[in-house]
Design a protein around this nucleic acid. Structure first.
Lengths: 163, 163
DNA sequence: CGAATTTAGTTTAGGTATAAACTATCGGCG
DNA sequence: CGCCGATAGTTTATACCTAAACTAAATTCG
C-alpha cells in the first residue's frame, strides 16, 4: 500500500508540474506576442501574421509557393490566401504563376516590400532583444536547448499518434 | 576598430539568439496549444477558451465576476461576454447579479458544468503530461524557473514602458 | 490514352482576438 | 440632491484561426 500511495503522489506532483510549465509557457508567449503585435500595429500599422508572412519571403528571396508559406507559418492554407491578397493590394508582394505548374503561384517581396520589411525587422529584433534581456545569454541558450528537446518530442509523438 | 567589430558581432549574434529563442517558444506553444484544442474538440466538442473559462471557475467555487475572468484569462472583456453566453446556453454555468452592485454579475459552474469539467480536466492533464514526457522532471523544473525569470522581466519592463 | 487520385489554392462557416464606442450603474463631492 | 468621472459589461468592426467543401490542374496507373 505504501508504495502505491507514493507512486501516485509522485505522479500527481509531476502532472501538476507539467501543467504549470505549460501554463507559464503560454503566458510568456502571449505576453511577448501581444506586445510585438501591438507595437507592430502602433509603429507600422501592420499585423503580426502579415509581418511573419513577409519575413518568410525575406528569408527566401527566390520566392515561395503558398503551400510552403503555410507550412512555415504553421497555419492552414485559408489564412495565406487572405493575407497574400492584402499584401498584394498594398503592393508589398508580387505573385506569378509557377513555371511548370499552373496550379501553383510564386510569391515574392516587391521592392517596396523589401524596403518596408527591412525597417520593421530591425525594430522587431530590438523589441525581442529587450524582452529577453531579463535572462542571461547562458540562460537563453539553456532555454533554447530545452525547447528544442520539447519540440523534438512533440514532433515525435505527433507522428506516432497518427491514430 | 577591432574592438568595435567584435562588439557588434557579439551583439548581432546575441540578437539572433533572442529571436531564435522567441521563435522556438512560439512554435512549442502553438504545437501544444493546437493539439490540446483539437483533442478537446474531438473528444468533448468544446473549444480551448471555453475550457479555460470553466477551469477558472473550477478554481474559484465561490464564483467570479466577468472582469475577474477576463483578467485571469489575459483576454479583453468582449470575449468573456460571448463565451459566457454560450456556456450559459449550454447549461454549464450559472449567472447572477452581484449583491450590492447591479452592474456586475457573478458566474459559477453549474452542477452539470462541474461534472463535465471534471472529466475534461482529467484527460487534459494526461495530454499535457504526455507532451512534456520528452523532458525530464529536472528539465521541467529548469524550464519552469527560466520562464519565471523571463515572465518577471516582461512584467517589469511593461510597467516601465508606460510611455 | 483516360479515369481515379492527389495536390494547389480558394471559399465558407464558426469561433476567438482586439480596440473602441456604447449603456448602465456606482461613488464622490459641491 | 444632482452632476460627473470611474467601473462593469456589451456591442461592433476588423482580423485571424481552423476545418471542410470546392475548383482546377497535375499525376498515377490500368
Amino acid at each position: 500500500m505504501r508504495e502505491r500511495v507514493d507512486t501516485e503522489s509522485r505522479a500527481t506532483h509531476d502532472d501538476h508540474l507539467s501543467v504549470r510549465v505549460w501554463l507559464r509557457l503560454l503566458a510568456c508567449t502571449n505576453l511577448i506576442g501581444g506586445r510585438v503585435a501591438s507595437r507592430l500595429r502602433d509603429d507600422f500599422d501592420i499585423t503580426l501574421p502579415r509581418f511573419d508572412f513577409m519575413s518568410q519571403l525575406e528569408r527566401n528571396p527566390g520566392g515561395l509557393r503558398m503551400t510552403e508559406i503555410s507550412k512555415r507559418m504553421m497555419v492552414t492554407g485559408g489564412n495565406i490566401t487572405r493575407i497574400a491578397d492584402q499584401l498584394l493590394a498594398e503592393g508589398l508582394i508580387t505573385r506569378s504563376v509557377a513555371p511548370g505548374d499552373r496550379r501553383a503561384s510564386i510569391v515574392k517581396l516587391s521592392a517596396a516590400g523589401r524596403r518596408a520589411f527591412g525597417e520593421m525587422a530591425r525594430r522587431h529584433e530590438g523589441w525581442i532583444v529587450e524582452m529577453f534581456a531579463g535572462v542571461s545569454e547562458t540562460e537563453r541558450n539553456q532555454l533554447y536547448a530545452l525547447l528544442a528537446k520539447l519540440k523534438r518530442h512533440l514532433n515525435a509523438v505527433e507522428s506516432a499518434a497518427a491514430r
